[in-house]
Simulated scan of single mutants.
Amino acid sequence: MVSDTDLFKEIRPYRDDEVAGAIARLIADDEFIGAIARYRYAGLSRMGGSLVKGLIRLYLTWRWRRVTSVHQVQLEVARFMEKMISGTTSGVTYSGLEHLNPDTGYLFISNHRDIAMDPAFVNWGLYTHQLHTVRIAIGDNLLRKPCATELMKLNKSFIVKRSAKGPREMMKAFSELSAYLRHSLDEQHSIWIAQKEGRAKDGDDKTDPAILKMFYMEGKRQKIPFSDYIRSLNLVPVSISYEYDPGDVAKARELHAKDTAGAYEKSEFEDIQSIVQGITGQKGRVHVAFGQPMTGDFDNADELAQAVDREIHANYHLFPSNLLAAGQVEGVDDNARREFEHHISQVPDELRDRVLAMYAQPVLNKG
């Protein structure tokens, strides 16, 4: 008989007994070491690439020599998060965490603005409030390099097979994913998943009903009514608000290209660049709001999607950047206004209206 763990081996995160092997493969991966050399030690790397790579390998071998469990990996991530928050934000705040039960697995469905930082900030809130961190849904489109897969699966990420082709293959992939979500929640492991595929580049946070239909596939297989099954998932909408989006210009440039040229072609490493930009870029203040579990009666995915949207929009924290972009100056102090004007002045002229619209959209969504 195949165990549950083996059943999901292709998509699940690594277990404790797989951590040491994954770390060894990472340290041996030339692309991974080369990426660290380029992003962290660019100047030194140009002068002596092989020497710098060798030193990085030695350092990582020493640094990670005692990391043999998922929990220890999470502690390494927590140390990194603390430095990142200190260096790239003006503070991170949370609301709604007091309503969460530490002994319950939740399916957190959130708006999506940043590839890596959205689940990272959710996790930081849970971690600092003595709650269990989440298993993170990540599309296989971001895992083109072996080192990316190793890193993500070490950090409690599971794989969403977006590259599945054809109805039968897609049905199989989404059925497996739906069953894995159920399996995780039954074991009190919480999940983070975005409300739709891809980031809301225009600032308009909308839930894709197809995601919710995928949630229900396992319930449908078990012949459980939609509303009953959704309630059993402990589905909690999460609103993540950034005062400033480090990727706002890049997102606006993509939208501009689609509108003016009819298409936008991503460069080979663009997703990686977006991740690095999101991690290292200045974000101002960040607020993460955890909503109430969706316990109502919902007849179908479309109805549920509208309810999730209402909760995400209602809980979205509006910063001065949002209010000013929407033309609401009342109550905004001069410092915040000057900071926003300076930020917008750095945006290329042809993209400025799009960036303003991006920041204004959450105000419009609140109504």
Rank of each mutant, 00 (worst) to 15 (best):
V2K: 12
S3H: 09
L7Q: 15
I11S: 09
P13E: 02
G21V: 12
G21N: 12
A22S: 07
L26G: 12
L26H: 11
I27G: 10
I27M: 13
D30P: 06
R40V: 03
R46E: 11
S50D: 11
L60Y: 08
W64N: 01
R65G: 10
R66H: 14
T68M: 10
H71C: 10
H71M: 09
A78E: 01
A78Q: 06
M81P: 00
T89L: 01
G105Q: 12
S110I: 11
N111R: 09
R113N: 04
I115S: 01
A116E: 09
A116K: 06
M117D: 00
M117E: 00
P119E: 05
F121V: 14
N123Y: 05
W124P: 03
L126T: 03
T133R: 13
I138L: 12
I138H: 00
E150H: 13
K153P: 07
S157N: 08
I159W: 03
R162G: 07
G166Q: 03
P167W: 05
A173C: 07
S175D: 10
L177N: 04
S178F: 07
A179C: 09
S184H: 00
L185C: 08
H189C: 07
S190Y: 02
I191K: 06
G198R: 02
G198W: 01
K201F: 03
D202F: 08
D202A: 08
K206A: 13
T207I: 10
A210F: 11
L212G: 02
K213A: 09
K213N: 09
M214P: 07
F215G: 00
Y216T: 01
Y216A: 00
Q222K: 11
D228K: 03
Y229K: 04
I230C: 00
S232K: 03
L233V: 01
V238T: 01
V238K: 00
S239C: 10
S239M: 07
E243M: 11
G247S: 14
A252H: 14
E254N: 13
H256V: 11
H256I: 10
H256K: 08
H256R: 09
A261L: 13
A261E: 12
A261I: 05
E265F: 08
E265Y: 06
F269H: 13
D271W: 09
G281D: 10
G284A: 07
H287G: 04
Q292M: 04
F298Q: 06
D299I: 15
A301H: 14
A305R: 06
Q306A: 09
R310H: 13
H313L: 03
A314H: 11
N315H: 14
L323R: 11
L324W: 05
L324D: 08
G327I: 04
G331H: 03
D334Q: 05
R337N: 04
E341P: 11
H342E: 14
H343G: 09
S345E: 08
V347G: 14
P348C: 13
E350S: 14
E350Q: 14
V355K: 13
V355I: 10
L356A: 13
A357E: 13
Y359E: 15
